[in-house]
Amino acid sequence: MRIILLLLSIALVSVAEAAEYAVVVARNSPIEALDSERLRDIFLRRRSFEGNIPLVPVNLLGEEAVRTQFESQVLQMNRGQINQYWVTSHFQGIKPPATQASLQSIKTFIERVDGAIGYLPISMVDDGLKVLHEF
């Protein structure tokens, strides 16, 4: 009985920790994987390339769960810190990444624009996309 309970609790923890979202690029992109620090630099526009490939990060408009989770887990910033960062960047002539109004339009943007990189629920990832990082 104890063993069954132990296995059940392990299974429950695994389910609770399973990633819901993924950072993705187009399937034909030569980029294979990126860690959180590199993603943070890309979405804060401190870095613009992976190798010689120019990157085009794209954000979801508004404050949907996928974006807030991306900001807290990958960027490790709250919305106030992010706003402060982009106001300071505005003085330096740097704009925030482009935005798209829906998850479907982010998916289409990534599939069609060279170098585009964005985040989606794992359930939306299909053969046209490649997962670089899960969160």
Partner: peptide, 10 residues
Amino acid sequence: SDYEIGLGKS
């Protein structure tokens, strides 16, 4: 809604 103070007018 296009304009947000501190981020300029794109």
